[in-house]
Amino acid sequence: MTVALINASPKVKGSSSGILLNDLKECLGNKVDVEEICLRTSKITAEIIEKLKKADTWVVAFPLYVDSLPSHLLACLKQLEKMTWKKPNLNIYGIANCGFYEGNQAEPALNVLKNWCAKAGCAYKGSLGIGGGGAIAVSGNMSGKNSLRANIYKAMKKFADRIVKKEGEANKYATVAFPRFIYKIAAQNSWRKMIKANGGKTKDLNKRLDVELTDTSVNKRIVYEQ
């Protein structure tokens, strides 16, 4: 049995999708053969097709973009829908990771993948929706088992077992192994670090293109939940 691990993050390196697929690969162990594929542009190349053809199961890992799939992945899926070499009853699993803490915010996007399966004649077998993607991205050199990905790794192990058995199940959701308020603060700090590294100032983060920076009345008017 051959499983195609498809990384559909547009990032060249360091994607959370890639880290999650590595965890999955580890969980799959030597029970299956694996084809690793990157979909970073809007075009399905002949080389990608050759790799996809070998697999009887595809796992599509992607970042949640504006509650949906990244645009280049939609373009790729359209091309793949029409391609007739796909095995009948090809098994499709998804891994959607999102910047928000709650993995279930990826549910509508996973339904897009499910709807694609219906049109493309593939068998949708259920997915993982994973929150806290920003933290996953900086945890690449930690082992999945006992790091901030511990909860996700547990879900991944079960997911891998289902893939090997070609079993289907409802989507499962998981998130990083620390509280939401810490994730929120960590994100806040990382934007401040990044803008400074880029030669800007913290206050640039709320820059509007239509007014002077000194007008912060917008932000003062809005009271957020804690």
Partner: peptide, 9 residues
């Protein structure tokens, strides 16, 4: 498939 096209996306 239940979302917008690649251009709009």
């Amino acid at each position: 498939y239940g979302t917008v096209s690649p251009f709009v996306k």
